[in-house]
Design a protein around this nucleic acid. Structure first.
Length: 271
DNA sequence: AAAGTTGGCAACCGCGAGTCA
DNA sequence: GTGACTCGCGGTTGCCAACTT
């Protein structure tokens, strides 16, 4: 197979005059800059035309993917917060592998990123449990054990936050105003988070979507079971305290230990 | 320290849907 | 109606850094 990150080029057979070499593989800084500058002055759309006009030896498809998944200014990077993870689990349990739909509920996150999260983190749990990640058993286990555990964590963190920080009222009013007045996705965080040592555990955009934004034509009902506004508001104010340690609990190293003995026992009974 | 293994993620592919001449 | 073209989505691949042996 010739995919992957090795820079290489292929012949564009569609080219009428002569043979144009099309680049594949990882993007260079120069290519990124070309794409960013072109879109900044001309906007998105007509990707094949854009690729040629920008002087990129890439397919339109490749340009679109690079822009949407990496270069777009409002892309958020870094670890998924517990709230985002909870959203993903909830949404996936309703929608299945409809990554782009799920991504619409997590502003700044791409379908590719969410898909990768699911494959690397969630499916890993399934492997540990020796079940198929798409099996009803595993999906039930997520609903019964994993999601409640995440909610518990969110609640615990929010109560800790409300003890240590009493300035949440302004945040609440801001959030509620946005929730009630504007159903469309609005990004307020223009700064990419790649360099942030402490990703915002409850960014406004995530909060908004958590609280009932329902996209047109989407089967998801917009209300995430029991994931209420109050919990999230309290979470939001914990940002200033930079709870890196608090949120590390859910990272990779929890692995097998994520499922406690009781839950494993129950799970085995289910299986 | 070196070799082997694993996990994360960027990028590619195929396919279906939409649009337009 | 239909064929060409574009776009967007979901699935898959493979590189490479981190980790383990």
């Amino acid at each position: 197979m010739s995919r992957g990150k090795i820079p290489k080029s292929v012949t564009n057979n569609n080219s009428q005059e002569g043979e144009t070499e099309l680049r594949r593989g990882p993007w260079t800084l120069e290519e990124d800059n070309l794409l960013i500058q072109y879109i900044a002055s001309n906007g998105e759309g007509r990707w094949n035309f854009l690729a040629k006009s920008a002087g990129l030896k890439r397919t339109g498809k490749s340009c679109r993917l690079r822009w949407l998944n990496y270069l777009k200014p409002d892309i958020r990077r870094g670890n998924f917060t517990p709230q985002e993870q909870l959203l993903i689990l909830e949404l996936h349990s309703n929608m299945g592998n409809r990554w782009s739909k799920i991504a619409q509920h997590l502003p700044g996150r791409t379908d590719n990123e969410i898909k990768n999260y699911w494959r690397t983190r969630v499916q890993k749990q399934a492997r540990h449990l020796k079940v198929d990640s798409s099996s009803k058993t595993f999906l039930d286990a997520i609903r019964q054990f994993w999601i409640p555990r995440l909610k518990e964590s969110v609640e615990q963190n929010s109560s800790l936050a409300s003890i240590s920080n009493s300035s949440c009222s302004s945040s609440v009013s801001t959030m509620e105003t946005r929730k009630t007045n504007d159903p469309s996705p609005v990004l307020t965080n223009d700064v990419p988070l790649h360099d942030s040592p402490c990703p915002n555990p409850m960014s406004p955009e995530v909060l908004r979507f958590s609280c009932g934004n329902s996209l047109e034509g989407d089967s998801y009902d917009g209300s995430i079971h029991g994931f209420c506004m109050q919990e999230l508001d309290a979470q939001n104010v914990s940002v200033s305290g930079c709870h890196v340690v608090d949120f590390d609990w859910f990272r990779e190293d929890l692995g097998e230990s994520f499922w406690c003995n009781d839950e494993l026992w129950q799970f085995k009974n289910m299986a």
